[in-house]
Design a protein around this nucleic acid. Structure first.
Lengths: 215, 215
DNA sequence: TTACTTTAATCAATCGTTTGATTAACTTTG
DNA sequence: CAAAGTTAATCAAACGATTGATTAAAGTAA
């Protein structure tokens, strides 16, 4: 490996590390509440480095999202095109994948819906909406297929089902001060998330939607 | 009415008006994003009046919550103590009242869960949690009563049901950029909220939980 | 050297807050 | 009654502190 490549890698790692730290700080304090001085100090780099790497505070902020948007694409897709399995089996798969993938990336999820809430930066919000909509569309397709096949009831409220799946997860993840005493364990603990929350949320969602959707 | 009382009333109205404006601006921009200059300008008062009335920006912020906390108390209570009606009937009443009361106060809801998310101001967060927990506890009581009576299944996940009810509503209200295209109408339009969202959310929640809870 | 990083010092702008002066309404005093 | 005093409300101006951003110099590796 050439020195250049080592440098590139180190540079990328450093940028990535700064992005990780910034993601956390932004999610804790909000865009305006997180000063560049705090972010740089937490990351252990000089303040000017943020502008050197990312141009501006907003550039840093946007980069956090761009990094994730690429890795988020097509996660939950290509489920609707398979005709060999039932719509309900697809739903179960969706819940599995969703519960697995999305309960992680805790900080980013918080940041994501924080940014979607206040719709400054209209272009970013639009990009994020499109990103999220891809998964929503897939879920929409599965539900409508289940109705058409006669597998699900004909009078189910498709948009509301989607809102329930996403909303329940968001509520738990983004409001640990409520959900931790509610569930009886610490939602912010990664170990608890893995061993208790993930199974619980998957199991509950399957039972809930099974009861609601099925004939 | 004496002059003093007139003065007091006018003063209260003005403070209340400033609080209304501040509530909206804070909910749109966040605590740090909303400058005192913007708030005072939107309210049409001199900047110094905010400090004159509320001591500080934080004082103003806290006053917004104190005002609501008083009016939020005991809204959904005293439902669990009535033995003459079934647990399911209580659930329906709860959903009705919740859908009615909470879909309003749009700005405050946003602000509330924004503040609960970032837990600065620990004492405020604790107060807000206690406030919300009162309603949660009531719901918890109803669900457990239904289980004990044999009206509901024995294996229902009580905390998750609660998270679903609150989470679904929050998702729709706090993420209009997602929920509006999802539902097919403008969530931010008060008229749409009244004529379409309220009935839809009530009806869906009843059907969803009916299917999940009942034997 | 040459090109890329990193640093401390510094910038103008904006932040929340405070000040002193002014107004207007009411109360007290003579 | 009228004059003087008192009070709360309001304002423009300015305060010190902090913000995001820039600079020029020093450091580093080829």
């Amino acid at each position: 490996m050439s020195y250049q490549k080592i440098m590139e890698k180190e540079k990328t790692d450093k940028k990535d590390y700064i992005l990780d730290v910034a993601e956390r700080v932004f999610s804790e304090k909000g865009f305006d509440g997180a000063s560049t001085r705090l972010i740089s100090s937490e990351a252990g780099v000089n303040m000017a480095m943020l502008n050197y790497y990312f141009g501006s505070k907003e550039g840093l902020f946007l980069e956090i999202f761009n990094r994730k948007i690429s890795s988020f694409q097509n996660i939950l897709q290509n489920l609707g095109n398979d005709d060999s399995i039932s719509a309900w089996a697809k739903m179960e798969q969706y819940i599995e994948m969703y519960g697995e993938k999305v309960v992680n990336n805790n900080c980013f999820q918080k940041l994501l819906y924080q940014e979607m809430g206040m719709n400054r930066r209209t272009d970013l919000s639009d990009k994020l909406r499109d990103m999220l909509m891809k998964n929503v569309t897939e879920l929409d397709k599965i539900l409508k297929e289940g109705i058409a096949k006669g597998e699900f009831k004909t009078d189910i409220d498709v948009p509301m089902v989607i809102a329930t799946l996403y909303g329940t997860k968001n509520y738990i993840i983004n409001t640990p001060l409520m959900s931790s005493p509610l569930l009886g364990y610490d939602i912010t603990d990664d170990n608890m998330i893995e061993t208790k929350l993930k199974p619980q949320i998957k199991s509950f969602m399957k039972n809930l939607l099974k009861a609601y959707l099925h004939n």
